[in-house]
Each structure stands twice: as structure tokens, then as C-alpha cells.
Design a protein around this nucleic acid. Sequence first.
DNA 1: GACCAGGTCCTTG
DNA 2: CAAGGACATGGT
Length: 211
Amino acid sequence: MSVSSSVKVRCIVRSLAGHYGGIAWWPGDTDEVMIGSILTQQTRWENVERALLELERRGLKSMHSLHTAEKQDIEDAIRCTGFYRIKAQRLQSLAVHVMDAYGSVDEMRQHPTVTLREGLLGVKGIGEETADSILCFGFQRTSFVIDAYTEKIMQCTGVMEKRQELKPLFETVLAPDPKVYRQTHAHIVEYAKGFCGKKRCSECILVNLNG
DNA sequence: GACCAGGTCCTTG
DNA sequence: CAAGGACATGGT
């Protein structure tokens, strides 16, 4: 990673923090974050919230209950998030992984981030973004989430690193504080939804926030 | 009706 | 390895 990229990212992070300040994001418990991370794949958050309510109503909003639930019940509960069949499968695969490898969500907390991440990535249907979302927002770890918004903003601001390079770049720049990681990602999503929609993403983030 | 949403996996060239 | 398609519903 080049020095100039680090400088740019540092500047962007600071600008976003100054603009948005501290915003609460994903206050839910660990089980809810794990489930929501899968449901939100390629899906609007408002639809995910409805599915979470429906899962709760059916007593399925936990790794423990999903582990033994009927697949059909899960599908019915999450239909409104789209890709409901594959997502039901992914939720159960995650639940099986959690229960088989650790016995419980609470037991997972005892393990180091790299171990948890490796395990999560081994679950079919959990890629880097979903794994990092779970670690960052569900387990309060310093594992930065790179999503399509982050990638797009980086392109708009002339940070040339490829997607794979962005995670280490941010993790070099950010203070090693879980709260900073969560807020920075939240800031990026907030900004992107406002300025990086559809076609024109020509406005530079630094101009928008500072000029 | 077209197009997109906080991805991931599988198949091709 | 990069690119394209599949998975599916709901909102603009």
C-alpha cells in the first residue's frame, strides 16, 4: 500500500467522523448480528428488520434455535429478504458451525479473532464481508468490513488499491479500537447512501464534506 | 417495467 | 485470476 493511500484514507476517515459524529449502529445482540449479517447480503436493511421480527415471533432468532429448526420455518420467516432458500441454508450452516465447533455463542467469545474468522469463512455462504460484519459488530473485534460502498468511495477518491488490499489499508490507518472500526464503517455506508447512488458518483467525498 | 439492494458461489474463458 | 450468471423479494 502506498503512503499516499494511507494519507487519503486517514483524511477521509477524519472527515466522515467530523461530519457524522458518533452514530449508533447495530445495537443488537450477537445472535441478531450473525443472523442479520447473512440476511442483509444484497438486500436492504428495512427488509432484514422485518425478517428479524418474524424470526423472533417464531422463536428462531438464535443460533441455538436455528440449529434444530425446520428449514421450511426459516424460509417462511425470511422470505421478504429475497434469496430466501439459500439464506435459510446459510443460517443453518452457520448455526451448525457455531454449535459443533464451540457449543454456544458465548463460548465463541473466548477465542481469538483470527480463529473465529477462519471458522466463519469455512461456512458456505459466509464470505469476507459477512465474516467481518459478524466479528466487528457482533463480537466487538477490530476486523474492518469492506463492502461495495467502501470500494466505490475509494474509487471515487482515487485510492487505487484493489478490494483485497483495502482491509489491511484501513486496519493500518484506524486506531485499534472496536468502536472506531464500527463507527467508520457506519459512516461510510451513511455517506455512500447519500452521495454514491446509481450513476453519478463524481462528487469527491472531500469536497462534499469539507467544501 | 427496469433497475437496484450493506454478497457469495460456481462456471467459463 | 477476471468476468458473468444464479439466487428472489420489495421498493423507486
